[in-house]
Amino acid sequence: MNNLANKTSIKNNKHEINKKDKIKILFRRHGMALVLLAMVVLMTVLSPAFLTTRNLMNVVRQISVIAIIGFGVTMVIITTGIDLSSGSVLALAGVIATSFAHPNQYPLIVSIIVGLLVGAIAGSINGAFTAFGEIPAFIPTLGMMIAARGFALIFSDGRPITNLSESFEFIGGGYFLGVPFPIYVMLLTAVISHILLKHTKFGRYIYAIGGNAQAAVVSGINVRKYLVLVYTYAGLLSGLAGIVLASRLSAGQPTAGVSYELDAIASAVIGGTSLSGGVGTIPGTIIGALIMGVLNNGLDLLQVSAYWQQVLKGAIIVGAVLLDKKKNR
């Protein structure tokens, strides 16, 4: 009797999702995608050079490095953390990887593994301090941001490391089936990160830790272990981004990637990742990165002066997130 009554009431509730609600939900879920779409439409109207295969590919290639970092940063932010060291770790991984990538020296895989390893180690140090030192991630990652840059300069003696093998330069500069290779790297990383986040225990735990760390402990989650893993993964991706960038620049630059961490954080947040934790997705971060990319590209095409570009960029980032918040009320 009671069960019956309840079943019908659940059913009724489902039926009540009407059209207006549907539009609301659609907008709530895909608000930033719509913003991106609006920007694309606007640019197409304003500049004939925008909607060409070449230009679009260019945009995506330009965001690939930021996006790769952004995927790791997204996970870190979901746990209520932050990673300020991405840009510097990228540079450190870049100079060390390139020093193993001179022609006829080692197989390509060695330099790649070295680059990834450098990133992962730096990340695990970030994670260990955050998890075991119980200090806010801001501090250890700020320290790493400064120190890793220092190490990059020490290691390279302040000079770019050049004379790289052809195969290494392919990673960032090559084309496959007419599409720049970094785009494949980005897509592959995106798919892996997305699967990790949505379909594995690791991912569920990341959301849980960010949603309520204390409840996570009581639920039997080894919070410290997973925090270290998250930062390690973020570091690993910074290392990967370092390899891609060094390859494209044909040099391990100790000064590469300055302030990339901020662009990565911005991409994640524009893409709907909540700084208060527990919320965020990889597709969202891709959209966030694309919005930044289209913005840069668009302002270039419209020949806005570099100084004004900065002002506009700042304003548009804040505006976009504000809009996103508004529609949730």
């Binding site: 594995t200 225990k201 735990y205 849980a208 960010g210 949603g211 409840a215 996570a216």
Partner: peptide
């Protein structure tokens, strides 16, 4: 304070402690 993951779904809140049974 020590129970719910407020921003997460009903489902995620339910199976988080028995997740190993679903892997």
């Amino acid at each position: 304070i020590s129970g719910l993951f407020l921003p997460l779904s009903v489902k995620d809140n339910m199976y988080i402690s028995s997740i190993n049974n679903y892997i």
